[in-house]
Amino acid sequence: MTGQALLVTRDSSLREELTRLAAAAGAPVVSAPDSGAALRAWGAAGLVLVGGDLASEVAAAAPPRRSRVGLVTWGAQPDGLFRAAVDLGAESVIELPEGAGWLTELMGDLGEDRPARGLVLGVVGGSGGVGATTVACALGQMAGRPSAVVDLDPLGPGLDRVLGMEELGGIRWADLGTSSGRLNARALREAMPHRDGLAVLTFRGTEGGVDRVAVRECLAAVRRGHDTVVIDLPRTGGEMWDEVVPRCGVVLVVVEPTVTGVASASRVVAALPDRGRARLVVRSGGISPDAVARALDVSCVAVLPTYKRVGESIDLGFGPVRSRSERIARAMRGILSEVAA
Score class of each variant (00 low, 15 high):
Gly164Thr: 07
Gly177Trp: 10
Thr306His: 15
Asp196Leu: 15
Leu71Glu: 00
Ile314Tyr: 03
Val301Thr: 06
Trp241Cys: 01
Ala85Ile: 04
Ser264Leu: 07
Ser180Ile: 08
Met192Gly: 04
Gly122Ser: 04
Gly75Asp: 01
Arg186Gly: 05
Ala271Glu: 04
Ala85Pro: 00
Pro115Arg: 14
Thr236Val: 13
Pro154Gly: 04
Gln141Gly: 01
Gly101Thr: 13
Ala187Met: 11
Ala214Gln: 02
Ala59Lys: 09
Ser266Cys: 08
Val86Met: 13
Asp274Gln: 11
Val86Ile: 13
Asp274Met: 05
Arg40Thr: 12
Gly80Asp: 09
Arg216Met: 12
Leu316Asn: 10
Arg15Pro: 00
Val48Trp: 02
Ala45Arg: 10
Gly36Phe: 03
Ala174Asp: 09
Leu88Met: 00
Asp109Val: 03
Pro28Cys: 00
Ser56Met: 14
Ala25Phe: 13
Asp290Glu: 14
Thr258Lys: 10
Gly158Leu: 01
Pro97Glu: 10
Glu105Met: 15
Val250Leu: 04
Leu163Gln: 02
Arg186Ser: 06
Thr236Phe: 11
Pro289Lys: 01
Glu217Phe: 15
Arg161Glu: 01
Ala5Arg: 10
Leu110Asn: 03
Gly261Cys: 02
Met240Arg: 14
Ala148Gln: 08
Val282Gln: 01
Ala265Thr: 04
Ala278Pro: 01
Ala143Gln: 02
Trp74Glu: 08
Ser127Leu: 11
Trp102Thr: 13
Val213Gln: 09
Cys248Phe: 02
Gly52Trp: 01
Ser180Tyr: 11
Met107Asp: 04
Arg145Met: 12
Val135Tyr: 00
Ala329Gln: 06
Cys218Ala: 13
Ala32Cys: 09
